[in-house]
Simulated assay, not measured.
Amino acid sequence: MKKTGDQLDIIVKILILIGMFIAVVLVPEILDVGNALAKQTPWAMYVAAAVFLAVYIGIACLGWWIIKPNLSRPQFTKFTWPEIKMVLIGYGLICILSMGLNALMNLVYGSAMTQNQTNVNDLLSTNTITLIVFSFAGAFIAPFVEEFIFRGIVISYFFKHQAWWLSVILSGILFSLGHASNNLISFSLYATMGMILAYLFKKSGQIKVSIALHMLNNTIAMILTIMTLVSAK
Rank of each mutant, 00 (worst) to 15 (best):
L15G: 11
Q7A: 04
A139S: 12
I59G: 01
W165P: 12
H161F: 03
Y46H: 13
Y190C: 07
I57N: 09
N35C: 09
V25Y: 12
S176Y: 08
G5S: 03
G63I: 02
I22K: 09
Y46K: 12
I220A: 05
N217S: 06
D6H: 03
I10R: 01
F21N: 05
Y199K: 11
D6Y: 05
S176Q: 06
K39V: 11
I11Y: 14
L124G: 08
K39P: 01
A48V: 00
V120E: 05
T128C: 12
S186N: 02
F79K: 00
A49L: 10
V47S: 15
D9C: 06
I220L: 08
A163P: 06
T114I: 11
I185R: 00
V120W: 05
H214T: 06
R151V: 06
A60M: 04
A49Y: 08
R73V: 14
F134E: 09
K85L: 15
G100E: 12
A163D: 13
H161Q: 13
M222V: 13
S204R: 06
I196T: 13
I196M: 10
T128R: 10
S135G: 06
E29Y: 07
S125P: 14
D32S: 11
L224F: 10
L197W: 04
A232P: 00
S186Y: 10
I22L: 15
V120P: 01
A112I: 03
G92P: 12
E83G: 02
G34Y: 08
D6N: 08
N116R: 00
F79W: 01
I169Y: 11
S188M: 15
